[in-house]
């Protein structure tokens, strides 16, 4: 895993999901589909590299997102991205999971992420919509987008994050 390469790719992904992807989402789905591509990448890091890499990626990019789009409050995405990616790494790190197992895990984590974010906003009274509504309105459509992205990114992500067999002395976090 080449740290510099990974960092620049993730940064590009973060830029894409906040600038170009919103232009591609149809107007009828405004406020309903939320691309969390960097979070999916952090999960891949947890599954195929190690949990510490996932923690660092989740923390840095969660913080970037929190500060850049500081509206209601800080810290929601930092906490959730870092902790959920770390948790995924803790449970499944180094298990060499096949694709058909990785996708449900990622979908579950994305659901957990959106649901927990809703919970935090609900506690701080930022939103007052009922959970059933938010689930159908934004969490479910976003889940499809995230799973689709995870499917598309599976091969490159695994190649990027999985440590090389032969030269294991390659730089690792």
């Amino acid at each position: 895993m080449n740290t510099r390469w990974v960092a620049s790719l993730l940064l590009l992904l973060f830029m894409l999901e906040t600038t170009i992807v919103p232009w591609l989402i149809p107007s009828s789905m405004y406020g309903r589909i939320a691309p969390h591509f960097v979070f999916v990448a952090a999960l891949y890091a947890g599954l195929y590299a190690n949990r510490h890499a996932a923690l660092v990626i989740g923390f840095i990019f969660g913080l970037l997102q929190d500060i850049t789009f500081y509206g209601h409050m800080l810290g929601v995405h930092t906490l959730l991205m870092a902790s959920i990616a770390y948790l995924a790494g803790l449970l499944l790190e180094g298990k060499r999971i096949p694709m058909l197992a990785a996708l449900p895990v990622i979908a579950l984590c994305c659901f957990l992420y959106d649901a927990a974010a809703y919970g935090i906003y609900r506690i701080f009274r930022v939103t007052h919509e009922p959970f059933e509504f938010v689930l159908l309105h934004s969490i479910a459509p976003s889940l499809f987008l995230q799973t689709g992205f995870a499917l598309a990114a599976y091969v490159p992500a695994r190649r990027l994050f999985e440590p090389k067999e032969k030269k294991s002395a390659d730089e690792e976090e």
Partner: peptide
């Protein structure tokens, strides 16, 4: 506008 938030519950833009 330079960017749009990807959080449906915090839909700010920059």
């Amino acid at each position: 506008v330079v960017a749009v938030s990807n959080d449906p519950l915090n839909p700010t833009f920059k």
